Simulated assay, not measured.
Amino acid sequence: MRRAAVTDWRPRLAPAIVLRHDRARDTDLLLLPERVVILRGAAGAVVGLCDGTRSVRDLVDELAGRFPDSAVATDVPPFLEGMRREGWLR
């Protein structure tokens, strides 16, 4: 996929997938029809921004402000693309 196509994509959760915070574990979860995915680190913050209105470029810019010492620009696009391959993001 072309780099521009990846950064212009506006990710959102696929239907029937829900992002929830588990207070008992103090972690974010993706609730899928027949399984639960535990999101580690800042993954919940990344997925929480995937509402279909922001492009990947916008997400990276916002997250770079929140996590200035992280490699957001190199880590977030492949993370989101992997989630799209799994069918969790559209």
Rank of each mutant, 00 (worst) to 15 (best):
R10F: 03
P11H: 09
P11W: 11
P11M: 09
A14L: 05
P15W: 11
P15C: 11
P15T: 13
A16N: 12
A16K: 13
A16T: 12
V18H: 13
V18D: 02
V18C: 06
L19C: 06
L19W: 05
R20L: 04
R20E: 06
H21T: 08
D22L: 10
D22S: 15
D22I: 13
D22W: 12
R23M: 14
R23V: 15
A24V: 14
A24D: 06
D26P: 00
T27C: 15
T27L: 15
T27F: 06
D28T: 09
D28A: 14
L29R: 11
L30M: 09
L30Y: 09
L30V: 09
L31A: 12
L31C: 11
L32Q: 01
L32F: 00
P33R: 14
E34T: 14
V36A: 08
V36H: 03
V37Q: 08
L39R: 05
G41Y: 07
A42W: 11
A43V: 05
A43N: 09
G44A: 02
A45H: 13
V46Y: 03
V46F: 02
V46N: 02
V47Q: 00
V47D: 01
G48Q: 07
L49H: 03
L49S: 02
C50G: 08
C50R: 06
D51K: 14
D51Q: 15
D51P: 13
G52Y: 03
T53G: 10
T53S: 15
R54K: 13
S55A: 10
S55G: 07
S55T: 14
R57Q: 07
R57S: 12
D58T: 08
D58Y: 04
L59Y: 02
L59Q: 03
V60Q: 09
D61T: 11
D61R: 14
E62C: 11
A64Y: 06
A64G: 15
A64W: 07
G65L: 10
R66T: 04
R66I: 04
R66D: 00
F67R: 01
D69R: 14
S70P: 00
S70Y: 12
A71E: 06
V72W: 00
V72H: 00
V72R: 01
V72K: 01
T74Y: 03
T74V: 11
T74A: 10
T74M: 04
D75P: 01
V76N: 02
V76Q: 03
P77F: 08
P77W: 12
P77N: 08
P78F: 14
F79M: 10
F79V: 03
L80Q: 09
L80G: 09
E81H: 07
E81I: 10
G82I: 10
